[in-house]
C-alpha cells in the first residue's frame, strides 16, 4: 500500500506540536505499519506487538516537544522509540512469564505455523537474516534485545574488541543490503 506523502517532516513535527488530531491520524496511517514491523521484529507476538504500538504512539504524542531534528529524522526518532518500547516489553516480568508458558505449549504442538516464524521475514530482521551467523547473533543481541557490547562480550565469551569490530562490520553489511 503506497500512501502519498502530503507533509514534510518539518511540517509534520510543527503540526504535531500544535496537537492537531488530523495530523496524528495522518502520522498513524503513514507510519504505524513500519513501526509495527520493527516492534514485531523484537516482540514477535502480534497481540503484544499491537499493544506496544499503541504505547509507542502515545509516547510519540507526549514526547514530540523533546524531538530534536538536529539529532536525526523524525522517522529515526520514532523508530528508536518503538525499539526501546519493544525491548522494555520483552524484558518485563509479565512477558518473560508468558513466553515460558508459550514455549511449553509450542513444544507440545510443535513450532510450525505460529506467527513467530513470519516476523523473521519482515523489515530490518529480514536483512539481518541474510548476515553470516557470527554477525547475526551480535545484531540480534544488541539491536533486537538491547544488550550492551560489554554484556554480549561476557555472554558469548568473545573479547570486547572483537564484538565491537564484528558488530560494525555487520552494520556496514546491513547498510549495503538496504541500499536500493
Amino acid at each position: 500500500m503506497e500512501v502519498v506523502k502530503k507533509y514534510t517532516e518539518t511540517e509534520l513535527v510543527q503540526l504535531l506540536r500544535q496537537r492537531s488530531e488530523a495530523i496524528f491520524s495522518y502520522l498513524y496511517d503513514n507510519y504505524s505499519g513500519a513501526l509495527l514491523s520493527i516492534i514485531l521484529n523484537i516482540v514477535t507476538e502480534e497481540e503484544l506487538a499491537n499493544d506496544v504500538l499503541q504505547e509507542v504512539f502515545v509516547k510519540i504524542w507526549k514526547q514530540i516537544d523533546s524531538y530534536d531534528s538536529t539529532k536525526g529524522r523524525l522517522f529515526t526518532w520514532m523508530l528508536n522509540i518503538a525499539r526501546n518500547a519493544s525491548i522494555d516489553m520483552i524484558r518485563s516480568k509479565s512477558f518473560q512469564n508468558s513466553r515460558q508458558n508459550r514455549e511449553l505449549t509450542e513444544d507440545v504442538y510443535s513450532a510450525g505455523g505460529t506467527s513467530e516464524t513470519r516476523t523473521d521475514q519482515i523489515g530490518v530482521r529480514k536483512m539481518v537474516h541474510n548476515l553470516k551467523e557470527e554477525y547475526k547473533v551480535l545484531v540480534e543481541l544488541s539491536y533486537f534485545q538491547g544488550y550492551t557490547q560489554d554484556e554480549i562480550s561476557k555472554m558469548l565469551n568473545i573479547p570486547l574488541g572483537t564484538v565491537k569490530t564484528r558488530l560494525r562490520t555487520a552494520l556496514i553489511q546491513l547498510r549495503e543490503m538496504m541500499k536500493p
Binding site: L36, V124, K126
Partner: peptide, 30 residues
C-alpha cells in the same frame, strides 16, 4: 541521512497493518 532514509524504506517495505481498533483507541485516549 542516507542511512536514515534506507532504514525508513526498509521498515516501510516491511510494514504490517496494525490490529484494527488501535487507532480508534489512540484517538479516544489522546
Amino acid at each position: 541521512l542516507a542511512f536514515e532514509n534506507a532504514l525508513e524504506k526498509t521498515a516501510m517495505a516491511g510494514a504490517v497493518a496494525p490490529r484494527p481498533g488501535v487507532k480508534q483507541q489512540l484517538l479516544a485516549e489522546l
